[in-house]
Design a protein around this nucleic acid. Sequence first.
DNA 1: CTGTTGAAATTTTTT
DNA 2: ATTTCAACAG
Length: 680
Amino acid sequence: MPSILDHLNPQQREAVTHGRGPLLVVAGAGTGKTATLVHRVAWLIAEGTEPARILLLTFTRRAAAEMLRRADGVLREMETATGRPRSSRVVSGTFHAVATRLLRRYGKAIGLPEGFSIHDRTDSEDLMNVLRTSLDLAKTDRRFPKKGTCMNIYSRCVNSRAKLEEMLAQHYPWCKQWEAELKKLFDAYVDRKEAQAVLDYDDLLVFWHALLDDPTAGRRLGEQFDCVLVDEYQDTNRLQAEILYRLCPDGQGLTVVGDDAQSIYSFRAATVRNILELPERYPDLSVLTLEQNYRSTQPILQATNRVIGLAQERYRKELWSDRSEGERPAMVTCEDEDDQTEYVIRRVLEHRESGVDLRRQAVLFRASHHSMTLEAELSRRNIPFHKYGGLKFVETAHIKDLMAFLRLAENPLDQVAGARLLPLLPGIGPGRARSLMERLHASGGDFSVWRKWKPPEACHKRWPAMVELLAGLAKSKAALADQVHQVRTFYTPLLEENYDNAKPRARDLEQLEQIAARYRDRRTMLAEITLDPPSSTQDLAGPPRKDDDFLVLSTIHSAKGLEWDAVYVIHAADGNIPSDMATDSPEQIEEELRLFYVALTRAKNWLYVTCPLRYYHHSFGRSDIHSYAQPTRFLPQDVAERFFNRTTTDVPREEDGLDPSPGSARLSSRDIRRQTKRLW
DNA sequence: CTGTTGAAATTTTTT
DNA sequence: ATTTCAACAG
């Protein structure tokens, strides 16, 4: 047994072999947090805990799969002679995914239908919008908050378990006047979900929480797990914390791992309070801190330690590394966005020349659209890249349309699905869609009532096919890929009528058909895709082939937990980092600081922070109106001295236009315009 | 009731 | 620049 502990440092070893008492591991960035958790899972199994009695909660599904894979490796190393235990039966996933599994199985105890549908954020907003309109809130004299805002308020109340009144006062003061209307709206929203057998993201947690409260089912559920391990605890919200308290009332068997310095999800109602106040909750809590960083060079750590030093409240820790050699991180001032793009690409290619593959380099940014210019330029030069975060493949209109067919077949009461797919037919708009869904609801979800409906002229030919398709799918036992194929056959002509650039969209649908084959059944596919949306088409298509190499582009949020040899943090201008949207309160600003810290600590060997000086107001227009940006406030003088300060002109530029390889011309039309502008 | 057109408002991060 | 809302013609 000791052999597997050999790779671990003393603090990690202590965490891995800790007994049954509640344990908090405060693990700084890159301190081997995942390794520790993985070894602890393996250790528990080796010590005789039944895998199925271990619950491992992670932030993404991918993280869960990765951890279990590694835990198996560790178990194998332990050489537990006969009947080697495996981690495959550990219950693992995100809070939401685990909740779904438990609720399908035990939800009946609290009157939840087994076949409930799950709404993603957009679906929830759509439903909210329908109610907002039908309650006549849309056209009041003073304008009522939009669907997205309503949803945010609702979700925040639920997740932080706070009263609407306090929530409005604290976070949405400009909506205070609408308190009474919002109450009515939220009541209607809750009732409507109940009538349609629909759960939204928040409901998954709420119902899990409630189920744990049930005298019989709750007891069984609570006794189901001996050990509960939670990763990224700093990004849990109050509701999630309460679920944990119910799972482990006395803290026995509970291990949570997190880093308060990396808490970046407060907009989703996550609160650092959970981790900061855990010692009060469990008086016998053991706190272990991991400070040895295995990821970054010492010069990078010296810089990032200074940055997080600006934070007010945190568990004190000073990260260090024995990788003392290394380049100091660079703070690069660029003339404008184009200059920044140019600089980043040049550096990326230089690193690739010296043997650092593109996939070992990442460009990080605060908001998804910050990478637009860069994406355009990378495409132009045929440099492959893969973007994480931002608009997802499954959020595009055509994928949502196709999924709406499957969803309605699965749950005919799901009005949002109906309201999405019915108006695809000409002659059917919101009004007719609503009345059709009402008929369907009245019949208890029997599609044959639609056969009697007289469709308007515009779609009377296609209507019967639509009805037969849905009725067929509803009771279909066919393979999922075949079902998707049927939908695709019916839907493709509609796609061409309803959207521009139908061709690439049609290709996406073909791809979705392939992917459907991988799921056990329709319900599983729908749930998994809404709970863990693949971040791009490539992601959906499966693991990338070993031989292709692509640069990683990612929002900082989506970069959480990952690392690269070279990291470029772009648009580090005040207003972007911190985002102007998030500078109302000191707490928000502090979160933006942590976000910046997360970005910087992704780097192993090279770190570049770039900041354009000038922002043009009309990015593609002829106007030359621009404003000047300040570098981020998170690099004040005493922090900045840990960086090399550069401007792009310090670095010798390659001679313009002399690059011989085709498709990578150095002189773009924008360069020419910029040079022209230097004349005045 | 649908579908189109023009005017007005708004712009982050995501399970 | 994109999304949302109101007005109007069919």
